[in-house]
Simulated assay, not measured.
Amino acid sequence: MVTVDDVRQVVRGLPRSSEHLIADRVKFRVGSIVYVAFSRDETVMGFAFPKEERPFLIAFDPATFHAPRESELRFNWIEAQMSRLDVDRMTELVLDAWRMVVPKKVWTAWQQQVEGTTASEGR
């Protein structure tokens, strides 16, 4: 099971990302756009996700993923049970959510920096 602190470790170095406490809920944003948010009890993580792909992810793993409440169905958003995620899966979901909300040039520069760091560590 992952925690909010695990997510903090992933988003720590992401350009333009910031953490906010809004109505007793931890949320991560780029500017005014929320890309990850947690339920008050921190058992559910909502995140940016293409709404046209949402039914497929839910059908693939309905024990982990579910649609947001009806008032949020119009948004690119999905929710996951934190207890069903491991660190690798959570990292993938969070990075994809962040990628959806930052300009392409920010994502590309970050990705090149990460790949450059990984390549230099392998020497």
Rank of each mutant, 00 (worst) to 15 (best):
residue 64 T to C: 11
residue 6 D to Y: 01
residue 25 R to M: 13
residue 52 E to Y: 09
residue 8 R to Y: 13
residue 49 F to E: 02
residue 95 L to K: 06
residue 71 S to P: 00
residue 38 F to D: 08
residue 117 T to E: 15
residue 6 D to W: 01
residue 25 R to E: 14
residue 7 V to I: 15
residue 6 D to C: 03
residue 37 A to K: 03
residue 32 S to D: 15
residue 42 E to P: 01
residue 72 E to R: 07
residue 78 I to V: 13
residue 46 G to H: 03
residue 120 S to V: 08
residue 36 V to N: 01
residue 121 E to H: 13
residue 41 D to N: 12
residue 47 F to T: 00
residue 96 D to K: 07
residue 80 A to M: 05
residue 122 G to Q: 14
residue 83 S to I: 00
residue 73 L to G: 09
residue 103 P to C: 01
residue 54 R to E: 03
residue 104 K to S: 11
residue 60 F to I: 00
residue 92 E to K: 07
residue 28 F to N: 05
residue 40 R to D: 12
residue 5 D to I: 04
residue 19 E to L: 05
residue 87 V to D: 06
residue 76 N to E: 13
residue 54 R to P: 02
residue 43 T to F: 04
residue 89 R to F: 11
residue 57 L to C: 02
residue 53 E to F: 05
residue 69 R to D: 15
residue 43 T to D: 15
residue 9 Q to Y: 04
residue 37 A to F: 10
residue 76 N to L: 01
residue 45 M to C: 09
residue 110 W to D: 09
residue 27 K to W: 00
residue 107 W to H: 14
residue 44 V to Y: 02
residue 89 R to T: 14
residue 54 R to H: 04
residue 30 V to E: 06
residue 51 K to R: 15
residue 83 S to E: 15
residue 79 E to H: 13
residue 108 T to M: 06
residue 2 V to Q: 03
residue 88 D to K: 10
residue 104 K to I: 05
residue 86 D to G: 08
residue 79 E to L: 01
residue 98 W to A: 06
residue 91 T to R: 14
residue 70 E to H: 07
residue 88 D to Y: 09
residue 75 F to A: 12
residue 12 R to L: 12
residue 82 M to R: 05
residue 114 V to P: 01
residue 118 T to D: 12
residue 89 R to K: 13
residue 69 R to T: 11
residue 20 H to P: 00
